[in-house]
């Protein structure tokens, strides 16, 4: 049986305490919510923290609150299953709920949280392997080594952003409330990420993601399309989120965000803006999809041929736009 290496487990009673514990331990500790991303990685020794700070039990992070302005605030420790089963969320943010429903498999969604999903570690098939395997192939930049195995001449890590929900959260202009030892701040989800496979988040290690905050629906339709080999369990190897506002059949605002194509969720601005003021006919959708696909440059570090994945992006985007425009979105 594959087992964990020893660590201490700390159980703070408030979010603030979690943050200050993290600050005290100064990089030695990691936070754990559901643990569905972290625990397998610890078993494979991709991280070796001496302590875990549990936050999944904190009641204050477990509710879905409807705000007076019409927006919604979801606690970071709310499970993906709870989001999937929330009819009202489905009505307002169908793309987000769809993305949550496509994460992995049902038992994982019963444990995995929405906060953990935003912060899911970037993936690479030279890295998401056991210690022994990595030792055999040679360690890499992201853990224990000094070169990138996918792009050996590159000074950086290209591990892939693999969150299903992050792209939709960005497309819907959601923000997160971060609680750190110095206090709270609220930042757009789009600024939570940076283009680096190792330091993929701008969040400080001692900051807790406390809430995910969606603005009021306000006519924004949304969708998410995921590419993976099997109908369950698998991480995205490509994905497209679309959010649109329409007026009289014309697009007034649009956002398109991709997952699984780079070390961060990729905002396809040009593609989105080319839709503005147009009917969503085949031409418009094709043009936007091709624009969105152009910058995507997948590498050979996730499932299936990367050349094929690159070709799929435009289809994902086109499907996402079509779905977002459909009735009931």
């Amino acid at each position: 049986m594959l087992r964990l290496k020893p660590f201490k487990y700390l159980r703070p009673s408030t979010v603030e305490e979690a943050a200050s514990l993290a600050a005290e331990l100064n990089g030695e500790a990691m936070m754990v919510a559901g643990g569905t991303d972290l625990v397998p990685k610890l078993k494979r020794r991709q991280m070796e923290p001496s302590a875990l700070i549990g936050i999944g039990h904190l009641e204050e992070l477990k509710s879905v609150d409807h705000l007076s302005d019409g927006g919604v605030s979801i606690g970071a420790a709310v499970t993906l299953s709870k989001v999937v089963g929330d009819g009202e969320l489905l009505q307002r943010y169908p793309g987000y709920v769809r993305a949550a429903s496509l994460v992995s498999s049902p038992p994982l969604r019963n444990l995995g949280t929405i906060g953990g999903n935003l912060l899911v570690d970037t993936r690479c098939n030279y890295y998401d392997m056991t210690y022994e395997w990595r030792q055999a192939v040679g360690f890499c930049l992201k853990k224990d080594g000094d070169i990138c195995r996918v792009a050996p001449s590159s000074p950086r890590c290209w591990a892939v952003s693999s969150s299903d929900t992050a792209p939709v959260a960005i497309a819907l202009d959601a923000s997160v409330v971060l609680v750190g030892p110095e206090g709270r701040r609220e930042v757009p989800v789009s600024s939570l990420y940076q283009d680096d496979g190792i330091r993929y988040t701008t969040k400080q290690p001692d900051e807790v993601v406390a809430f995910l905050h969606f603005p009021p629906k306000d006519g924004w339709r949304s969708s998410y399309v995921k590419l993976r080999r099997r109908g369950s369990i698998d991480f995205p190897i490509g994905g497209a989120a679309a959010a649109l506002r329409l007026q009289d059949g014309l697009v007034t605002e649009a956002r398109i965000v991709l997952s699984g194509v780079a070390s961060h969720p990729v905002i396809a601005e040009e593609a989105a803006s080319c839709l503005i003021g147009r009917h969503l006919d085949d031409d418009a959708i094709t043009e936007a999809s091709e624009k969105a696909a152009k910058p995507a440059k997948p590498l050979d570090n996730t499932d299936l041929a990367y050349t094929w994945r690159k070709r799929m992006v435009k289809h994902l985007v086109s499907q996402a736009i079509t779905e977002a425009a459909a009735p009931g979105r």
């Binding site: 098939n125 055999a136 192939v137 099997r230 109908g231 991480f235």
Partner: peptide
């Protein structure tokens, strides 16, 4: 394999059809 190394010795990466497939 990648050269002589098994590319994906895990249940996640070795694809076996799930119920919905």
């Amino acid at each position: 394999y990648r050269k002589a190394l098994h590319k994906q010795p895990s249940m996640l990466d070795y694809k076996s059809l799930t119920f919905v497939d």
